[in-house]
Simulated assay, not measured.
Amino acid sequence: MKNTFIHNNAFLGDNVYIGNGVTIEHDVIIGSNTQIGNNVTILSGSRIGENCQIHSNAVLGGLPQDLKYKGEYTLLEIGDSNIIREFVTINKGTVSKGKTCIGNSNLIMSNAHIGHDCTIGNNCIIGFSVGMAGEVCVEDWVNISGLTAIHQFSIIGEHAMISGLSRVVKDVPPYIVAAHEPLRFSGVNTIGLKRRGFDSRKIDELRSIYRILFQEKRNTKFALELIEETFEDTDEKIKILNFVRQSKRGIIKGLEF
């Protein structure tokens, strides 16, 4: 461990591997069996779970890039079994939420940036050089392809897939593929859903729900009421209705089926 600094106040679990040139500041917790590659910087207020892989030159827990941050005590919380590749940067929170949260079993590819107060769920893939502004929420099983830019406060629903080079400025509902410029609904995420155990009947239900949501010519309120009346109260239907109704930024637009 050449040129490595580990503060006396940092806590490392059992069997933690530390590479060369690593800096671990005070008030850092790293769980057992986590691997820290060369030249990684982990700053104060960072909490990292067990069985993670942090690859070379990542910077975790950096100060928020936000003018409202005034040095208050905030955290970065990273769960278990995450893979964080080279040159990833993840900032800690501000007074807004107090912490940035990364769930479990995510893959965050090289050069990605996750801003202050973001929330990432479980089993997500964040592609190469994805840029995520502050207070973005990414739900479980989301796949965001490389070089995508995500506006602050945006929400991406569970099981959604975002195509590469996208510009996300509206909320992306769950279970869909979003593509094109400007970003639009491009169909249900059929391949991803099948991989996760959704059967053909459930996928057809989702396709029918989104056909009404994105093709109804009157207004979104009427489309939501029609969906509520037409379909049984499945978990997926309720999730979609709640997502759209609670969206503050509005959702992306659709394509013709």
Score class of each variant (00 low, 15 high):
30 I>G: 11
30 I>N: 09
31 G>D: 13
32 S>Q: 10
34 T>K: 08
34 T>C: 12
36 I>R: 05
36 I>V: 14
36 I>P: 07
38 N>R: 01
39 N>V: 00
40 V>A: 13
43 L>Q: 14
43 L>A: 12
44 S>L: 09
45 G>I: 03
45 G>W: 03
47 R>Q: 15
48 I>G: 06
48 I>T: 01
49 G>C: 11
50 E>C: 14
50 E>I: 01
52 C>T: 06
53 Q>P: 00
55 H>P: 00
57 N>R: 09
58 A>G: 11
60 L>I: 03
60 L>N: 06
60 L>D: 04
61 G>T: 02
62 G>H: 07
69 Y>P: 12
70 K>W: 01
70 K>I: 06
72 E>I: 01
72 E>P: 06
73 Y>M: 12
74 T>R: 09
75 L>M: 14
76 L>Y: 00
80 D>R: 04
81 S>M: 09
82 N>A: 09
82 N>V: 04
83 I>N: 11
84 I>S: 06
86 E>K: 07
86 E>L: 02
87 F>I: 02
89 T>V: 09
89 T>Y: 02
91 N>P: 09
92 K>F: 01
93 G>M: 03
93 G>C: 05
96 S>I: 13
96 S>T: 13
97 K>Q: 14
98 G>D: 07
100 T>K: 01
102 I>H: 10
102 I>V: 14
102 I>T: 10
103 G>F: 05
103 G>I: 00
104 N>Y: 08
107 L>M: 14
109 M>F: 09
109 M>A: 05
110 S>L: 02
111 N>P: 01
111 N>H: 15
111 N>E: 12
111 N>V: 00
114 I>Y: 11
116 H>A: 05
118 C>W: 03
118 C>P: 03
119 T>F: 09
121 G>A: 10
122 N>R: 06
123 N>H: 15
124 C>K: 03
124 C>L: 06
125 I>H: 09
126 I>T: 10
127 G>I: 05
128 F>A: 10
129 S>M: 15
129 S>R: 04
130 V>N: 04
130 V>I: 05
131 G>K: 04
133 A>N: 09
134 G>R: 03
